[in-house]
Design a protein around this nucleic acid. Structure first.
Lengths: 238, 238
DNA sequence: GCTGTCATTCAACAAGTGTTGAGAATATAT
DNA sequence: ATATATTCTCAACACTTGTTGAATGACAGC
């Protein structure tokens, strides 16, 4: 045995590779990690990547896919549970949002370090112009569609456009949270900690629920904006 | 002249490099771009990077710094304008938020392609566990501190913790928006377009303003959550 | 015209990249 | 025990990476 971490020691090589790749890709992105970084961490020869996965790209998507199905099944169950409990009425907006986010927080805090890395990886992918549209769409769109249907059921008079925008803001907040960059720690002088997902979880669904409701009622009372400034000149040397 | 794009043709080499690096770093991150990619795009020799900037890392931070000062000055002016206009009262929450975000939308839509790349780059940096805390903190914390002071002035009874968390959600939404991954296009079936920053701008400040208010009143009426599930077992093969 | 400074190019470096074919080790089945 | 897959290692491949020192061009001041 080489330098494989204690946690992944006794497992077969392909899983050791997946674990190491998950951790490293999450920290430094696809290009920031070499296959040798990964196999060194896994205590395995470089060529094993080619044997099990084909190439670096395929390894990346294998890491991404591994936990996606588990996660989506769990989220879907929760979503239907929320809907069932509310019968014969409609579920509250907060409950729908929490069904979407709760599995993320649960797995990240109590699912072990692999899950924590995984969510950071999803955050990376979601923000990447290169990988985002391809990989997120392929693996998460079916679930997201059902989630959005749930939002529409909870907000029957809201125009769909507003719901999609509200969903984007929600995803953005989630993404930054699970990236756990630690910036909020420095910014708040230690008052908030990026790793304190409990606190985020408590606050996220009230926050976005209120946001959704504000978007839906937006046509009536538009909030005042600062006065528009004159168009910016397109200087060639800004 | 080599392959330099029309737009950057007549400019000195260091600025051509900055422009090309800005565009490429924004698209594929720090590690996804080689110095040769950059200098080829700029129509310049590789060694010129070392001469002007020292190395790849320094080039990266130079790109990041170039527009930060301009941007922050503009945002600060707008923030103080909002405060001044509201005297002798306090500014509304929506106005404070808009002062923070408006320069971003203005520059991104009317500032030319360099600015658009720049905001995508900031989105990349903000979500990166590696670069985020260092670079964001160094270049944006002073302004963000003043912005948060503005939020506290607009929400005098809100505990600071709630404001910091609310700010994180706001930043996350902003970040994903400026990454312009295009995922929302596919998801919404064309109903929303990631490049349509006007629509985002209209919606973001009402959304987050409502979110902030919800966080501040949170202690009284907590929203109902789905029932807590039994603790997840730490399976070794999830 | 000469000189010195700045900007740029050329050429090469050692180190690291992903990938691949041949072979050893290990497990599984008969 | 032997045959057969499966899993893994070794060694090398062609290529790209960031960096650097020497040489060349441009161009001002005198």
């Amino acid at each position: 045995m080489h330098k494989a971490s204690r946690r992944t020691a006794g497992r077969p090589g392909n899983e050791r590779i997946l674990d190491a790749a998950e951790q490293l890709f999450a920290r430094r992105g696809f290009y920031g990690v070499s296959l040798r970084d990964i196999t060194r961490e896994a205590g395995v020869d470089v060529a094993l990547v080619g044997y099990h996965f084909g190439g670096k790209r395929e390894l990346f998507t294998a890491v991404f896919e591994r936990r996606a199905a588990v996660l989506n099944r769990e989220r879907l169950e929760l979503l239907e549970q929320v809907r069932r409990r509310a019968l014969p009425g409609r579920p509250t907006l907060e409950a729908v949002v929490a069904a979407f986010t709760q599995p993320l927080f649960d797995r990240s805090t109590r699912g072990g370090p692999g899950w924590k890395s995984y969510f950071a990886l999803v955050a990376y992918v979601n923000n990447s112009p290169e990988f985002g549209p391809l990989m997120m769409t392929r693996h998460f769109d079916p679930l997201v569609g059902k989630f959005i249907a749930g939002l529409r059921a909870a907000l029957p008079d809201c125009p769909p456009r507003e719901i999609y925008w509200g969903y984007q803001f929600l995803t953005g907040a989630l993404t930054l949270t699970f990236a756990e960059t630690g910036r909020i720690d420095a910014l708040s002088g230690g008052l908030c900690r990026a790793t304190d997902l409990e606190s985020v979880h408590e606050r996220l669904s009230p926050y976005v629920a209120a946001g959704f409701r504000a978007l839906c009622g937006r046509s009536l009372a538009r909030a005042p904006q600062p006065r528009a400034r004159p168009a910016l000149p397109r200087r060639r040397r800004p």
